[in-house]
């Protein structure tokens, strides 16, 4: 990890340097250091990613900078080496992401020489939509609508997402190839049968596919794989002293001077880490001293709270809220 950060200067890398970085980062561990269970998950995901590249006209990989995206990117590098992934990466930026996420994103894209498309909903930004004043409208405008804009503007027919079936009840029922109509909505009552590994990627004009290559991974699998493969992840996943305020039972990090304090609120420095990453005002931290992968994995194995508890948006609208947002086109 030291040498990855050692390339922090701004000199553009040559193609050979980029390929060497990919080669080094995906190098296979000896048999004894690999888990057969992870090998099977890896093989399934690579198969899916290759099917999309082979069958779909214009794919894109959503890159949310989180740990699941980092694993998905790693799998995409493995699937195609010595070729680079034959599709661009899309980051829907709400402008409220943790600044460490954006730094990490730019570092990774540069290290491998990948094509990044950053999309921001300009109208939303101009209208001053923000997570403090606008609540669920913020998520709709800056995430859901922004994603739809980005996919439409790019003319993308297939978008890889890092969703996992163990995350949430309605995701547990979503196919690996999940279809969206011309309005980019999901019809959960009429999902296309998905038999064996025969993926039917046919769509009509205007329709698109969301593809979830890591559907069958659990949170624990993700962490074990990150450790096995030594995958670089955003430092926010590791515990460190950070300025937070406690609000509605959640610890919210004060990441920049746009933070709006409520009366009586003052930032406190606590040792925290994040189990998921998103917009900083909407992402709860966990008190923890786990500052190594092993310590994180120990905590995860003992977890009594499933990970989305720390995402404030899921609680907005009761237990069906995630499904409802997906019907509306949220990823």
């Amino acid at each position: 990890m030291t040498d990855r950060q050692g390339q922090a200067d701004e000199r553009p890398l040559t193609h050979e340097e980029e390929m060497e970085n990919i080669r080094a980062d995906i190098a296979r561990r000896p048999d004894a250091e690999r888990s057969p269970h992870l090998d099977a998950l890896e093989a399934e995901s690579i198969y899916i990613i290759r099917e999309v590249a082979a069958q779909c006209e214009r794919p894109v990989m959503l890159y949310s900078i989180g740990k699941d995206s980092s694993v998905m990117l790693h799998l995409a590098l493995k699937a195609f080496y010595p070729e680079k992934p034959p599709f661009p990466f899309l980051h829907v930026n709400t402008t409220w992401k943790f600044h460490e996420m954006i730094e990490f994103r730019d570092r990774v894209m540069r290290r491998y020489g990948l094509e990044l498309i950053e999309h921001i909903n300009r109208e939303g930004l101009a209208a001053g939509i923000n997570p403090f004043d606008n609540g669920s409208a913020y998520t709709d405008i800056m995430k859901t609508q922004a994603l739809r804009q980005a996919l439409r503007q790019g003319g993308f027919t297939a978008a890889f997402g890092g969703g996992r079936r163990d995350e949430e009840k309605s995701r547990a029922k979503e196919r690996i190839f999940s279809f969206r109509n011309a309005q980019q909505a999901w019809d959960p009552k009429n999902q296309r049968p998905e038999m064996w590994k025969l993926y039917n990627a046919h769509i009509n004009k205007g329709e698109s596919i969301r593809v979830f290559p890591i559907s069958n991974w659990t949170e624990k699998d993700i962490w074990l794989y990150i450790r096995q493969e030594n995958i670089d992840i955003v430092p926010l996943y590791f515990a460190a002293p950070r300025p937070v305020v406690e609000r509605d039972g959640q610890l919210i990090m004060v990441d920049d001077d746009r933070f709006r304090f409520l009366p009586g609120e003052r930032p406190q420095t606590r040792s925290v880490r994040f189990r998921t990453l998103g917009c900083y005002p909407l992402t709860g931290a966990t008190e923890s001293t786990a500052d190594t992968l092993d310590a994180i994995i120990d905590e995860t194995l003992a977890a009594v709270e499933s990970e989305r508890t720390t995402r404030v948006i899921d609680k907005d609208g009761g237990s069906a809220s995630m499904e409802r947002r997906k019907l509306e086109g949220y990823f």
């Binding site: 949430e168 009840k169 309605s170 995701r171 547990a172 029922k173 959960p188 069906a320 499904e323 409802r324």
Partner: peptide, 8 residues
């Protein structure tokens, strides 16, 4: 209820 995830 643990398993039946969709509102419908």
């Amino acid at each position: 209820l643990l398993l039946d995830g969709l509102t419908a």
